[in-house]
Amino acid sequence: MTRELLDHRAEGPASAPPLLLGPSLGTSHALWDEVAPELSITHRVVRWNLPGHGGSAPGLLRAGATVGDLAALVLELADALGIERFGYAGVSLGGAAGLHLAVHHPQRVSSLAVLCSSAHFNGAGPWRERAALVRREGLASLAESADARWFTPGFTVPRLVRDHRDADPEAYAACCDALAAFDLRDRLADIAVPTLLVAGREDPATPPAHLREIADAVPGAALVEIPGASHLAPAQCPGAVLSALRAHFGASAGPAGRGMAVRREVLGDAHVDRAQARQTPFTARFQDFISRYAWGEIWTDPTLSRRERSMITLTALVAHGHLDELALHVRAARRNGLTPEEIGAVLLQTAVYCGVPAANSAFATAQRVLAEEDGRGG
Rank of each mutant, 00 (worst) to 15 (best):
residue 1 M to Q: 12
residue 4 E to W: 07
residue 5 L to S: 05
residue 5 L to C: 03
residue 10 A to D: 04
residue 10 A to L: 01
residue 11 E to L: 14
residue 14 A to Y: 00
residue 15 S to P: 01
residue 23 P to R: 01
residue 24 S to W: 03
residue 27 T to Q: 02
residue 28 S to D: 06
residue 29 H to D: 05
residue 30 A to D: 11
residue 37 P to W: 01
residue 41 I to Y: 06
residue 43 H to P: 02
residue 47 R to P: 07
residue 49 N to D: 15
residue 58 P to N: 07
residue 63 A to V: 06
residue 65 A to P: 00
residue 68 G to S: 09
residue 71 A to G: 14
residue 74 V to K: 06
residue 75 L to D: 10
residue 76 E to C: 09
residue 77 L to I: 09
residue 83 I to A: 08
residue 88 Y to D: 04
residue 88 Y to M: 08
residue 91 V to Q: 10
residue 95 G to T: 03
residue 98 G to S: 00
residue 101 L to W: 05
residue 104 H to E: 15
residue 105 H to P: 07
residue 109 V to C: 07
residue 110 S to C: 12
residue 114 V to T: 08
residue 121 F to S: 11
residue 121 F to D: 12
residue 124 A to N: 07
residue 128 R to K: 11
residue 129 E to I: 12
residue 129 E to Y: 08
residue 140 A to Q: 13
residue 140 A to W: 04
residue 141 S to H: 12
residue 141 S to E: 15
residue 143 A to L: 01
residue 144 E to M: 08
residue 146 A to C: 11
residue 150 W to Y: 13
residue 152 T to V: 15
residue 152 T to M: 04
residue 153 P to Q: 03
residue 159 R to T: 13
residue 162 R to L: 13
residue 165 R to S: 12
residue 168 D to V: 03
residue 169 P to F: 05
residue 170 E to K: 06
residue 170 E to G: 10
residue 173 A to M: 06
residue 175 C to H: 01
residue 175 C to M: 04
residue 177 D to K: 02
residue 179 L to G: 04
residue 180 A to Y: 09
residue 185 R to S: 15
residue 186 D to E: 15
residue 190 D to C: 10
residue 193 V to A: 10
residue 196 L to D: 00
residue 199 A to Y: 07
residue 206 T to H: 10
residue 214 I to W: 05
residue 224 V to A: 01
residue 235 A to Q: 06
residue 239 G to P: 09
residue 242 L to W: 09
residue 247 A to C: 06
residue 249 F to M: 08
residue 249 F to V: 08
residue 249 F to C: 08
residue 251 A to F: 06
residue 252 S to I: 10
residue 254 G to T: 07
residue 259 G to Q: 05
residue 260 M to D: 14
residue 261 A to Q: 13
residue 262 V to S: 08
residue 264 R to G: 15
residue 266 V to S: 04
residue 266 V to A: 10
residue 267 L to A: 13
residue 268 G to N: 11
residue 271 H to W: 15
residue 272 V to L: 13
residue 273 D to K: 13
residue 277 A to I: 05
residue 283 T to V: 04
residue 284 A to T: 02
residue 287 Q to V: 11
residue 287 Q to D: 14
residue 292 R to A: 02
residue 295 W to F: 14
residue 298 I to Y: 12
residue 298 I to P: 03
residue 300 T to H: 03
residue 301 D to C: 07
residue 301 D to V: 00
residue 302 P to F: 01
residue 303 T to Y: 09
residue 303 T to S: 13
residue 303 T to P: 00
residue 305 S to Y: 00
residue 306 R to T: 10
residue 307 R to E: 14
residue 309 R to D: 01
residue 310 S to C: 05
residue 313 T to I: 08
residue 314 L to M: 13
residue 320 H to R: 15
residue 320 H to T: 15
residue 321 G to Q: 10
residue 333 A to W: 06
residue 339 T to E: 09
residue 343 I to K: 03
residue 346 V to K: 00
residue 347 L to C: 01
residue 353 Y to S: 06
residue 355 G to L: 05
residue 360 N to G: 03
residue 361 S to D: 15
residue 364 A to L: 13
residue 366 A to K: 02
residue 367 Q to N: 14
residue 368 R to Y: 09
residue 368 R to M: 12
residue 369 V to A: 06
residue 369 V to S: 07
residue 369 V to R: 08
residue 376 R to K: 12
residue 377 G to P: 10
residue 378 G to F: 11
